[in-house]
């Protein structure tokens, strides 16, 4: 009897160990694999340039790009800050506007009927085609850039949050009604928490879109001087055939996008990990 017990214990142990090993392996792979793949790609890029004798005004190697990044850091970091400011400001306004509109939509069906098509039209019209007009009508360049980035970024937040606010459990709604909840209580204690995961999904998309919006708007605006962002630096470097600097600025834009996405994902995890299905790791 005791031997069988021990055997079962041993079997469970082995399975547990296998689990633990698999989990550990997955943890390492999660970080290692992307790093290895990126390193490999950079290495290949470097070799291609060297082996084929590609001149740096056509395709600079990664080393030269890094060198340029360090050399031009003064100018590029100023540009980065400008782009970052516009991106984050647009995202902030998109969050406030998107969530605010979503709340108004769920409070009044008539309001939603009236303004939802408007939001859709804004969303489906490519921002590149609206941007020139915006820069004609809006005097302040910063305001114009912000407006363009906002138009692109706010829709996913609006549509996701609206969906979330409308996804409350029907029985919970009934319960709130039975207990005499006010509209405000229902919104605050029931609808907003229900909408949170949807909103965070929208935020992740909107973060990337606000960067795209800021960059595209800058291309269209196209004026330089002090206070110009990364997109303008790319344009400018292109005119001067300074390809390494184009790459350096591009690198910063890509890195900014990754940082924004990561920040949104971390925020999502921090807010949801205690209760939401998406953040719960299932066994086996």
């Amino acid at each position: 009897m005791s031997t069988t017990d021990m055997n079962t214990a041993a079997i469970v142990d082995e399975e547990e160990l296998r689990y633990a090993r698999a989990e550990k392996r997955e943890k390492i792979a999660k970080w290692l694999l992307p790093v290895v793949v990126i390193a490999l790609a950079v290495f290949l890029w470097d070799r291609m340039v060297v082996w084929n004798d590609i001149p740096h005004y056509i395709l600079p190697g990664p080393g030269l790009v890094l060198e340029t990044l360090i050399q031009d850091w003064g100018m590029l970091s100023d540009a980065l800050i400008v782009t970052l400011k516009i991106t984050l400001a647009a995202l902030a306004v998109a969050v406030v506007g998107g969530v605010g509109l979503a709340i108004l939509f769920t409070q009044s069906r008539y309001f939603e009927m009236s303004f939802y098509p408007f939001a859709v039209i804004l969303q489906v019209t490519p921002v590149v085609s609206i941007a020139p007009l915006i820069f004609i009508y809006v005097d302040s360049r910063i305001a114009g850039l912000l407006l363009c980035a906002w138009i692109v970024a706010f829709f996913p937040i609006l549509s996701n949050t609206t969906l979330g606010l409308n996804s409350t459990d029907h029985n919970l709604r009934d319960l709130y009604k039975i207990y005499g909840a006010t509209r405000w209580q229902r919104l605050r204690y029931l609808q907003l928490p229900t909408a949170l995961p949807y909103f965070l999904g929208g935020l992740r998309i909107a973060g990337g879109l606000s960067l795209i919006g800021a960059v595209v708007a800058e291309y269209v605006a196209g004026t330089g001087g002090i206070g110009s962002g990364l997109a303008f630096r790319i344009l400018e470097a292109g005119y001067r055939l300074n390809i390494p600097r184009m790459f350096a600025a591009l690198l910063l834009i890509a890195a900014t996008g990754v940082v924004i996405f990561t920040a949104a994902s971390l925020l999502s995890h921090a807010l949801l990990h205690k209760w939401h299905e998406s953040a719960i790791k299932r066994e086996s």
Binding site: Y179, Y189, L190, P193, L196, H276
Partner: peptide, 19 residues
């Protein structure tokens, strides 16, 4: 019909909270 974002005691609190 519990609110998944709320703890057990917060869920039981609901009828009072709404008052």
């Amino acid at each position: 019909t519990l609110m998944p974002w709320a703890t057990v005691e917060q869920n039981v609190w609901l009828p009072f909270r709404l008052r």
